[in-house]
Amino acid sequence: MHISLTVNGKSVQADVAPEELLSDLLRERLGLTGTHVGCDTSQCGACVVHVDGRSVKSCTVLAVALQGSTVTSIEAVASAAGLHPMQKAFHENHGLQCGFCTPGMVMSALDYAARNPDPSAESVRHWLEGNFCRCTGYQNIVAAILAGAAAMSERAKELGK
């Protein structure tokens, strides 16, 4: 079935099978392998991307259902100017070890930061219910998300001046 959608700011046309998942469309067809598939059972969150501005598990979304949608994956987060403040915060706080879960963590964290004007360690921990890390024990991930959210709101204030 033919669909047209926007992926990372670019218009994409694709003929997809009804059972093709968004994670397959991104990885196999568009070569965007930053989106990882950890469990394929919508538990681990390594495959989290944004659809129309909200974080979703791309292994549990049918590509065919996304006609006209806007998809953002980890590849579009950094810019020519360098890492996004949230990515930088993961780097600086050692919020990763093997890195497999990191793309999903960052995409989930960006949705958290957008929706929580008053971030807290407790609400970050609840938010991460659907993102598994099997290396770090979450301590530094939580610290990274708090630092990233603070940097994002700082940057927004700077831009607002």
Partner: peptide, 9 residues
């Protein structure tokens, strides 16, 4: 219910 990504859909 579930987690934030499940609640979004």
């Amino acid at each position: 219910i579930g987690d934030p990504q499940v609640r979004n859909r």
